[in-house]
Amino acid sequence: MPLTKSIGELLHRRHGSPRRAHARPGPDRFGLDSMLAGGFTAGTLGPEDEARLADEVAQLLPHGADMVTKARETLTTIVDHLGGQRELMAWLDRHPGRPRLIARMYVLMGQLDRYSDEGAVLDALRASRAQDPYPGGLRDYLPPDTTDETLGTVAARIEDLLADGREEEAVRLALATTSWLRHVAESADDPLPVVREMGELMAHVHEDVGEAARRS
């Protein structure tokens, strides 16, 4: 699965990607148990408690923009203990249910941010949208014009849906997006390597997100 191919710092949205401006009450409800976090970093946490901690982390991640300070500090200790944000995603992926689903959604968001300003990808997207401006499941999410913010906008919408607790809708958007981008790559005339790579990665992510969603 493509966690090992994840791109960049997955907890940081791409600079300029749209975000919802107003604060949510969510982070006040979703904290991290400091006792669990302490036991985890000390290496004394049992499997059941580690699974609880992973679920708490998964609930908190979509609130990164407005996370309360204490939760952010606790999360930082967990990330540092694991060795980085890629390792955080791999750790979450080892826990079925919400943690695995959230990890795979963040892999997708990282990839969308990665390809947002790739010229060859943008050309392929524009060519595809000239034939079908709003592919299935994306009419309410794609901006009218295809720019270097288009895929970042979709990533931000996925994260907003997760933060609002609308996981099923977020999954539908993720699967519609990966299906579309895979089709874009497969239907492109003489696609450049970066476009082919995108299509292959999106095929993997589509399978992985779907599998995680079915088991969550």
Rank of each mutant, 00 (worst) to 15 (best):
P25Q: 05
M109F: 11
A185Q: 13
H95N: 00
L10M: 11
D189S: 15
D123W: 02
A176R: 00
M35Y: 03
T41N: 11
V121N: 12
R20L: 05
F30S: 12
Y134V: 10
E211N: 12
D164K: 04
M1W: 13
A23Q: 07
D117F: 03
T41S: 14
R72C: 05
P135Y: 06
L161I: 03
G97S: 05
A21H: 08
D33I: 00
V57K: 02
K70S: 15
G64W: 01
P193C: 13
D66L: 01
G83S: 12
A156L: 04
A58V: 00
D113C: 05
V195G: 09
T178E: 07
V194T: 15
D55P: 00
A176G: 01
L60K: 02
A156D: 09
E186T: 10
A103W: 01
D189K: 15
F30W: 15
M35P: 00
R52D: 00
P191D: 08
M202C: 04
D66C: 05
F30P: 04
A21D: 11
A65C: 11
H12A: 15
D93C: 07
T76M: 04
E207Q: 13
G38T: 04
A51V: 01
R126Y: 01
L138Q: 09
M198H: 07
M35I: 05
L161C: 05
D113N: 08
E207I: 07
M109K: 13
P99Y: 03
R100Y: 00
P191N: 10
D28C: 05
F40N: 12
T69S: 15
D66G: 02
M109E: 15
G210M: 08
A185D: 12
M35R: 09
I102F: 01
A185M: 13
K70T: 15
L82Y: 05
G165M: 02
E159K: 11
E159Q: 14
P135F: 08
S6M: 14
R19P: 00
E169K: 13
D189L: 15
E56S: 02
M1P: 14
I158N: 05
I78Q: 07
E200K: 09
S216M: 13
H206T: 04
L53K: 02
P143I: 01
F40T: 11
D49I: 03
G46T: 01
M1S: 15
L45F: 11
D117I: 02
Q85N: 13
E186F: 08
P191E: 08
P18C: 10
G199M: 07
M67V: 12
R126P: 00
G43E: 10
H95W: 00
P96D: 09
R29T: 02
D49C: 06
K70L: 15
A156P: 06
A120F: 13
M105K: 02
G210F: 08
E167Y: 03
L162A: 06
L125Y: 07
S17L: 12
Q59A: 12
T77A: 15
D140P: 01
F30K: 10
D123G: 07
E200G: 07
A21P: 04
M198Q: 06
V194H: 13
L61K: 00
E207A: 14
Q131K: 14
R20M: 03
G31W: 08
T153F: 08
A42H: 12
T177S: 12
R182V: 06
Q85C: 10
M89F: 06
